[in-house]
Structure formats: C-alpha cells, structure tokens
Design a protein around this nucleic acid. Structure first.
Length: 183
DNA sequence: GAGGCGATTGGCT
DNA sequence: GCCAATCGCCTCG
C-alpha cells in the first residue's frame, strides 16, 4: 500500500528516519531509499529559514508534495515536504527498478554510483523542476513504506556550513549505495 | 544592479 | 585533493 499524504504530517526527523527502507518510484523507475536528511522550519541549514521565496515555495505548501530545486545551477535535488517549512532531502537509493532507463539517463552503468547523491538520483529518475509541488501519492510518483524497521545510522548532514552538528542524516546501516560512507 | 555563494558532481593533478 | 560548471537567491549599495 502506498504511503498516504498524511503520513508526512509528522515531525520531519521522524519522517526522514522512517523513509529509509521505503521504496521510491518515478514512472516505475526507482528503488529502496538508503539515505535521507531532515531540514526543519527553524533550522539554520534549511532553505526555509528566511521564509518563503519563489524557489522554496513548495516547502510552505501542503505536506506529502515534492520540493525540487536546482543545486549549484546544474543539478536537481528532490525533497518531500512535511510540516510547513520542513522537508526531507532524498540523498540516495539502491537502484532496483528500471535500471536500464537510469543508465540511459546517466550514461553510466556502475550501480554503486547510479543513484548515490541527490543530483545523481534526480538525473537517474528523471526528476526536474516540472515535478516541483507534485503530490507524491499520485503518478508519476509512488512511495511504499518499509516492510520492517531496518538498521539505521544517524550522523551529521553533508555539504552544509550551518548546524553541522545536528545528526539528521539517516542511512541504511549496511548499504553499499550511500552518497558517502558512514564515518 | 552587481557580486558572492550554495542541501553537487565529474574530471584532472 | 582541487577546481570549474552554472543559475537563482541573498546582501548590499
């Protein structure tokens, strides 16, 4: 059973943790989420800390929708909106479904690097600005919950300069598909 | 209106 | 390990 939108109407740290082990599909292409990060409304590292802008507007919209933004002017990053101003960044998945489509989009076949990183994941799954604000309980999206609580490692978030001590990066402990190894 | 910078990645030293 | 690519937003002036 797909996750209903109200499942995301919880504190963002819990949602980020519970998304590890869930299956994310975009038009049937995807796999198991192995790495997430939580960003909260009053979080100095969050795009939402200074209030709504055209870019981050989706973070202040309804929960259970996508927030897609351009990173470094080049890549796309995919988030799931929770309560207002909070979202979970999906950083890596284990590629399982439609891997031929992922390889075609990425031009690279190494499964370890196919979806390991927020920019790579969006390229492999075909996520871009067109999906900003899109509801996640409807096509092209489908998210199914983890069948059992997997072993999870929490640590500091990656690539940020503020709030670097907050342990809101959640990884599937034994996964070989993380964007960066657990320390 | 100009300048700086970022929740990144890939290529080269 | 270092650095360029490239664009929207923020901070000034």
């Amino acid at each position: 059973m797909p996750l209903p939108r109200f499942w995301f109407d919880r504190d963002v740290e819990s949602v980020a943790r519970d998304l590890v082990g869930a299956t994310l599909l975009v038009n049937g292409v995807g796999g198991v989420i192995v790495e997430t990060e939580a960003y909260d409304a009053d979080d100095p590292a969050s795009h939402s800390i200074r209030g709504p802008t055209p870019r981050n507007a989706a973070m202040f919209g309804p929960h259970g929708h996508a927030y897609v933004y351009r990173s470094y002017g080049i890549h796309w990053c995919f988030n799931i909106v929770c309560r207002p101003g909070s979202a979970v960044l999906i950083r890596a998945i284990e590629p399982l479904y439609g891997t031929d489509a992922m390889i075609a989009r990425r031009g690279f076949a190494d499964p370890r690097r196919l979806c390991a990183g927020p920019g790579r994941l969006c390229q492999a799954l075909g996520i871009d600005k067109a999906l900003d604000h899109a509801p996640l309980d409807q096509p092209p999206f489908a998210i199914d919950p983890a069948t059992a609580a997997p072993p999870i490692h929490a640590g500091p978030r990656i690539g940020i300069t503020l709030a670097t001590g907050t342990p809101w990066r959640f990884c599937l402990s034994e996964s070989r598909f993380l964007s960066k190894p657990i320390r």
